[in-house]
Amino acid sequence: MTASVEFRGLRRTFGRTVALDGLDMVIEPGEFVALLGPSGCGKTTALRCVAGFEQPDSGAVLVDGKDVTNVPANKRDAGMVFQSYSLFPNLNARDNVAFGLRVRKVDAPTRHRKANELLELVGLPTHGDRYPHQLSGGQQQRVALARALALEPRVLLLDEPLSALDAKVRVALREEIRRLQLDLGITTIFVTHDQEEALSVADRVAVLRDGRLEQVGAPAEVYDRPATPFVAEFVGTMNHVAGNVSGDRVTVLGQVLPVDGPVPAEPSVDVLIRPEAVQVSPDPDGTAEVVAASFRGASVRLRVAVDGGEVLADVPGHEAIRLGAGTRVAVRLVERPVLVAPRTVAAPAPVAADAV
Rank of each mutant, 00 (worst) to 15 (best):
K114S: 07
F99E: 08
R102E: 13
V97F: 02
V97N: 03
T110E: 06
V122D: 06
N116H: 14
E120A: 15
N96C: 02
R102K: 15
V103T: 08
R113A: 12
K114E: 11
L121R: 02
K114T: 09
L119W: 04
L124E: 00
G123Y: 06
A115M: 05
L119V: 05
R102A: 12
D107Y: 13
F99Q: 05
V122L: 13
V122C: 12
L101G: 12
L101Q: 07
H112E: 10
A108M: 05
R104I: 02
G123P: 05
N96L: 00
R94A: 15
D95F: 02
R113S: 08
V97E: 01
G100K: 01
L119D: 00
R94F: 11
R111N: 04
N96R: 00
G123W: 12
T110P: 00
D95H: 04
N116K: 14
H112N: 14
A115D: 01
H112M: 13
D107N: 12
L118R: 06
T110H: 13
V97R: 00
G123C: 12
D107S: 13
V122F: 06
H112W: 14
V106M: 13
R111T: 01
A108R: 05
R94H: 14
L121W: 01
R104P: 03
L119Q: 03
L124M: 08
A115C: 07
V122Y: 03
F99A: 05
F99K: 05
L118H: 04
R94T: 08
A98T: 00
P109G: 11
V103Q: 13
R113I: 02
L101Y: 10
R102P: 05
R111C: 04
H112F: 15
R94M: 15
L121S: 04
L101D: 11
D95L: 12
V97D: 03
R104Q: 09
K114R: 14
K114M: 08
G100D: 09
V97P: 03
R111Q: 07
P109H: 11
F99C: 11
L124C: 04
H112C: 14
A108D: 05
D107V: 14
K105W: 09
N116Y: 09
F99S: 13
R111H: 10
R94N: 14
V103E: 12
E117H: 08
R94G: 11
R102D: 09
V103F: 08
V122R: 09
L119R: 01
L101K: 06
A98H: 00
D95E: 14
R104G: 07
E120I: 09
H112Y: 15
E120D: 13
G123D: 12
K105A: 11
A98V: 02
R94P: 04
K114F: 07
